[in-house]
Design a protein around this nucleic acid. Sequence first.
DNA 1: GTGGTCTAGACCACA
DNA 2: GTGGTCTAGACCACG
Lengths: 123, 123, 123, 123
Amino acid sequence: MTKDFQASKPIYIQIADQLSSQIVRGEISAGEKLPSVREMAIQSGVNPNTIQRTYSEMERMGIVETKRGQGTFVTENEQVLKALKLRLQTDIIGVFVQNMKELGFSQEEMIEGIQQYCRREQA
Amino acid sequence: MTKDFQASKPIYIQIADQLSSQIVRGEISAGEKLPSVREMAIQSGVNPNTIQRTYSEMERMGIVETKRGQGTFVTENEQVLKALKLRLQTDIIGVFVQNMKELGFSQEEMIEGIQQYCRREQA
Amino acid sequence: MTKDFQASKPIYIQIADQLSSQIVRGEISAGEKLPSVREMAIQSGVNPNTIQRTYSEMERMGIVETKRGQGTFVTENEQVLKALKLRLQTDIIGVFVQNMKELGFSQEEMIEGIQQYCRREQA
Amino acid sequence: MTKDFQASKPIYIQIADQLSSQIVRGEISAGEKLPSVREMAIQSGVNPNTIQRTYSEMERMGIVETKRGQGTFVTENEQVLKALKLRLQTDIIGVFVQNMKELGFSQEEMIEGIQQYCRREQA
DNA sequence: GTGGTCTAGACCACA
DNA sequence: GTGGTCTAGACCACG
């Protein structure tokens, strides 16, 4: 029954998510050039092939565009970036709702909980 | 730098969280006997030492009590169980709020998002 | 100007095309199990990673489905298989029309040519 | 077995085909002088020996004639040029029919497919 | 320089 | 056994 400990997502996906997050929250701008495959590999401490896969996956999703011999660039297509933000948001909410339901909380209690949490945080 | 991929929590913590969750949502009742260390180890497919550590940690937090020669039992102290539920809830909410803020969402947008998500899920 | 001699498509795409063709013309049936990654690699005389990539690409396109620990199977979704046939057909026609136009043939001459060719072939 | 990937035709043949195509569609006229071996080699970015072989092959087929000290000229023999056009056309059609048959298409479906393709292309 | 492909060999989770 | 991921190191085409 209970198996799948460690269960960590593949590194190439983790990096893609990380970059996606940075793009969505504006740390990396639309049209901006990402580090080259090799450079990013060094920065992240992984094999260049892994970054290659990250970039390929992101290109497949339309988040970046690659220009042979020039580099990999964040798309300027606002539609795609909007959809990306929505997807990331939905993922996070999905995990949250799932976890809260497992603890037996209703939708109202979730919202209540967030409001309390934020009030407490401000103080 | 950045080399914290795979980042999975220790197995004994994972199991503790899992048990805590089951307790909070009533799958395991207050006062109920948990499986023996050996049995639990087999069920989970891990080393008995790992389960021992899980139970120790949970006892340290007051969630379970061990009675020599009888086994490990969920506490009947409602205060502790309430606090446990609150802690788990707060953890989940904390992660959620953190993630959503990183994407640039306000508190109102978070709540809005959850409501939309739940509406969509019902359909 | 004139460069790009050799211009051969990547091996993993060539194999995907080859398999797709076999599927479309019924040599491999819907639902059938493909050779394992390692076996196919030996058959094709390439590295297992290359076949892995082939299968991944085909899964991305919905042509095959992989079941962990069991193997890779041709989809039974007729819609997808129909679309695949259409795509392969369109590709072939595209190349043909392109080539014929470069030789200065009109649409009518292309059709005429095919009819003559087929008549001659029968004899 | 099966190890014929990359399968690109020899460069000297590729160039011959390219020149033949240009001749057939009138980009290079009958009787016109082709670039010198050396010049053509530079244009194409290949070794002069390769071009020499291209010209030899084309002379063998009667498509060009070399005049010592003057250069290589496209034949003015209309019969040959007509035959060349026919041969190129037949080759293309042969490949096309072969491919379509492998996908299980009948002659009627081929023609139908081309007509649809051309209609779609105009739009 | 850039990205794209390929090989060789390894370890993992799942069944 | 299966497929999935990762590393290490190589060669290629393109600009």
